[in-house]
């Protein structure tokens, strides 16, 4: 059952990302990515991380992708995107990506052979994560709040139109 769910979610996730790359419409790309992120959240839940799975759905599939769709709505491309002119760059990118894929798989094969048997990890419930966040990771957590405020102010200042114009 677990293996079936894993295979289903992985195939859906990889297929959705492929669809994002192939489809030529940005709104459809963003919607494919919502599907991909939801499937990743399912994989997180399979890995005993329910809190991160819920955060993934709320923040990634909810907030960030809605932001993307808003921007796609504002940036209207009338005639759609023209197909790429330089074919050789696309072929080069695909060849290099396949080389990287093989390289990473070889690295994985040689690095992971001793730890093939996995320990059954403790369930990452929200209370334990909250406890860790406010004890061991207190400073990173507080600095994150500064980062978010800086990003918010920066985004508002960047996009605001000048009054004089």
């Amino acid at each position: 059952m677990e293996l079936f769910l894993f295979i289903l979610l992985s195939i859906l996730c990889i297929g959705a990302v492929l669809g994002m790359i192939i489809v030529n419409n940005q709104a459809y790309s963003a919607l494919f990515l919502v599907l991909a992120f939801s499937c990743t959240a399912g994989l997180f839940a399979l890995l005993d991380a329910p809190f991160i799975a819920v955060v993934q759905i709320i923040i990634y599939a909810g907030a960030i992708l809605v932001l993307f769709i808003f921007v796609i709505m504002m940036v209207d491309i009338k005639e759609g995107l023209t197909p790429e002119k330089k074919k050789w760059t696309m072929a080069l990118a695909c060849i290099l990506a396949v080389v990287l894929l093989i390289e990473l798989l070889v690295a994985l094969k040689s690095a992971l052979s001793p730890m093939a048997t996995s320990v059954s990890g403790q369930a990452g419930n929200a209370s334990e994560i909250g406890h860790l966040l406010f004890t061991k990771y207190l400073y990173p957590f507080e600095i994150t709040s500064v980062l978010i405020i800086a990003a918010m102010v920066g985004a508002i200042v960047l996009v605001k139109k000048k009054d004089s114009e």
Binding site: I52, Y60, L67, F68, I148, A151, A155
Partner: peptide, 12 residues
């Protein structure tokens, strides 16, 4: 995930 949210806001 938090940093990605901030990055998405600035990037967009």
């Amino acid at each position: 995930i938090t940093v990605a949210a901030a990055e998405a806001a600035i990037g967009l």
